[in-house]
Design a protein around this nucleic acid. Structure first.
Length: 224
DNA sequence: TCATTAAATTGTT
DNA sequence: AACAATTTAATGA
């Protein structure tokens, strides 16, 4: 199992830190286990940490007043999230929920701010990540307006496995069809049908509570 | 280790 | 939205 220190050390933003800088980050960052279904943080919280997923899967979601839930995006192992409101010093605008029991790194704001002040590589990483996320969400909007349900599910899955945002993401991930439906903005029933179509075409394999991506590029290009 | 049961997830209407 | 079928996890002999 990956230790907290290893998880930090192999993060993209840690590559160009000096050993002293890395040591400080490791000293000040703590690890917490979030049970499946539990919140990492709530909307309205004052942001105090930058979060890294060591192991597991976390979704960013919102609940409407009517009780309808939508998933904005998911963060797999190796991904870091929460920098948006941390940078702006605003209250959290959405919930983060563990989709399954996950091990998270909690980096305090002061450590995050210190890295921002001292490491050019860290700034470059954030710029890169924010840009990549912007592209991801533009893609979501485009997909929402243009694609039919089949293509939307395919494209949502492709963006979940984005190797630029989430390097080292295993192509086999435990996630239920109900969660995929929330992510793609489709019903569970139609998601189920789409997954079978995608499996027929050899783009992925569906298992019990999990999917395996076989052809990421094929998912990206999928239409009709 | 195996059988039983409950819970979660999937597949269909 | 409801239901049945299937798979997994948990429990205890």
């Amino acid at each position: 199992m990956l230790t907290l220190g290893e998880a930090i050390a192999r993060s993209l933003w840690a590559k160009d830190l000096t050993p002293e800088q890395l040591a400080r980050v490791e000293r000040e960052t703590c690890e917490r286990i979030i049970q499946a279904g539990d919140f990492v943080c709530h909307r309205g919280d004052r942001p105090e940490y930058w979060f890294g997923v060591i192991e597991g899967l976390v979704k960013m979601s919102s609940d409407s007043e009517a009780g309808k839930a939508v998933t904005l995006t998911s963060v797999p192992a190796g991904g870091w999230f929460g920098e948006g409101t941390l940078l702006k010093r605003e209250l959290r605008k959405s919930d983060f929920v563990a989709l399954r029991t996950s091990r998270l790194a909690f980096m305090p704001y002061r450590t995050f701010a210190w890295l921002l002040d001292t490491s050019i590589a860290f700034n470059q990483f954030l710029l890169h990540q924010l840009n990549e996320r912007l592209g991801q969400f533009v893609g979501f909007v485009e997909s929402d307006r243009i694609d039919d349900t089949n293509a939307r599910v395919a494209h949502c899955l492709a963006s979940l496995f984005n190797p630029i945002l989430y390097p080292g993401m295993p192509m086999d991930v435990p996630i239920s069809q109900a969660e995929i439906a929330l992510l793609a903005g489709a019903s569970r029933q139609s998601t189920n049908q789409v997954l079978r179509i995608l499996e027929e075409r050899g783009l992925l394999r569906v298992g019990y509570g999990s999917i395996t991506i076989l052809d990421l590029d094929g998912l990206r290009k999928f239409s009709g």
